[in-house]
Design a protein around this nucleic acid. Sequence first.
DNA 1: AAAATTAATGCAAACGATTGAAATAAACGT
DNA 2: ACGTTTATTTCAATCGTTTGCATTAATTTT
Lengths: 335, 335
Amino acid sequence: MKRQITIKDIAIKLGMSTSTVSRALRDHPDISPKTRAAVKELAALLGYRPNRIALNLRSNSTRTIGLIIPEIEHYFFSAIINGIEEIAYKNDYSVMVFQSNESYKREVNNTQAVLTNRVDGVLVSFSKETRDFSHFQKLIENEIPVVFFDRVTDELRADQVVSDDYQGAFLAVNHLIEKGCRRIAHFAAPQHLALGKGRLSGYHDALLKHNIPFNNDLIFHADTFETSRKVALSVLKKAERPDGFFTVNDMSAIAIIKAAKEVGLSIPKDVKVVGYENSKSAALSEPELTTIDQYGYELGREACLMLLKRLRENDLPAKPEKKVIRTKLVVRSSA
Amino acid sequence: MKRQITIKDIAIKLGMSTSTVSRALRDHPDISPKTRAAVKELAALLGYRPNRIALNLRSNSTRTIGLIIPEIEHYFFSAIINGIEEIAYKNDYSVMVFQSNESYKREVNNTQAVLTNRVDGVLVSFSKETRDFSHFQKLIENEIPVVFFDRVTDELRADQVVSDDYQGAFLAVNHLIEKGCRRIAHFAAPQHLALGKGRLSGYHDALLKHNIPFNNDLIFHADTFETSRKVALSVLKKAERPDGFFTVNDMSAIAIIKAAKEVGLSIPKDVKVVGYENSKSAALSEPELTTIDQYGYELGREACLMLLKRLRENDLPAKPEKKVIRTKLVVRSSA
DNA sequence: AAAATTAATGCAAACGATTGAAATAAACGT
DNA sequence: ACGTTTATTTCAATCGTTTGCATTAATTTT
């Protein structure tokens, strides 16, 4: 980088001290209008811009927030990042992005990186592998505000922003039942994630409401396209096949639709499917997918707003806040 | 943030000067093994980590790269970010993300932000609105290495990493012709983007190779789902409708497939479609979309590698480099 | 034993900005 | 005319680290 203009350059050229220049630029009342004008003029002429690094060092803050996220290449997360960046931008913060790639080890590295980069606060959605949270605990011990979103834990004293998984699942399963389904399979997320538990519980309670017995044989662990396809193929071939599916994400749902077609079943006539996420793909599948909108963009915004609030208050949460983002049933043709 | 352990803390506790501590930590040969061990032990015990901001100030570098991108919420770009972050991570750089949201004004702001944050280098894919490049010129004048990717311009002396748009388009159109198409429409990107021109030219030359006359009436400007749907609906209703479509991205292609179905045409029998991008949605559409894989992940990696190379060499490109990433035809069922 | 060499450590400036306190200069009251 | 305000400006320390040079202590050479 080219040598940048400093306050000292201006001071020398104008034959005054750096303090005067500094004060003039920030409209300190002690400075006479004449010198203030002179300083500002020269500063503009030379294209002076304050050195943020020096400011960072002095203020011990970077106006930067760290974002630790499993993978960007996933519609839901990219929608969240979009929301986060939006709020950060409006508040003159910058966002540093770190991907864990669903790897615990890498996530631990990410927390180190976030520490060495001295970010002011951190937004985290942890990896599927993560069971131990001491690396995040270390952030908290360093009094760096941390807000967890989507993938959260109660083991740490930290704010949370989550989608209303219970409500979303309830809406989805209730819809399937109202459309006539009685044997509803659930393709579930890992149960160590709160969202996995929440959705299962929403599924459970929707059945309960309609007096349909809960059957554990209808719960499958499948949260990727490939495994969902395989599981669906085997399940759909059985005599007692489900007449409805509620999945953890849209990819799984679309995999089921594909599998159903493959074995000659018609959707939504023979089998009904409700996904989760409302990704771009949901509107493109054939038939178009009924799904739960998670408002990823809004979730990102709220998470960032909560973090900024903590940064402003400059306190660690005595009692952590938990914000729940509504969900919405988007009815299309698959159920 | 909690007050962090500094070199001074260690120095005082050990009754020595900060210089000695600093040198001990960096294994300077002048330091005796005994004091070195003592320093390192205490540093580890106290959990000392060097203050990156202070280092930044001294070295005048931040080990951070700025990324200016139209929108994250788009498969191609998120794949690119993934590749960029991967390389940055491996080389101990951090990535700051700035979205332009396809807005010229915001993009100008992004370049300011990148400047005040004193990033070491910048990766840019500019917005559709951008016709004037003086904001990027300012970066270059400040001798900040800039690498453009995907959306590039020859107006600036800067490195470029692009997808082989000509080849991709040629492959796509050639495929359509070999499958029997003779009236091939092209849903094109804005022609002020180099990628728009490149693809049009690939389209043109593929026709030429098979002695099919170029017909300007078959070129449409449509690069979103909605406009593509509308254009396709009107075009497909005409008597002289195209028998093949080559689009600028997968969304447009899927819009055409939907429109074709709507007017009762069968794919690929009546109309064949080739998209561009190989997004996740491409594999999910019905029929599955034949498309051009752009290797977004690889493109991101290469762009980042090129930037890091410049940073290492610490020179501005006397002659800018241009790296072209191959493309691949992915044949599925739509053509 | 004095001089010269080597080893180990400390001093102080620097990176760019801010800021409390001190200093200077101008203006005022009596 | 002289002390007292008031207005402006400068000094110097600070943020945390690195590093050229000086310093001190220990060791070797003659």
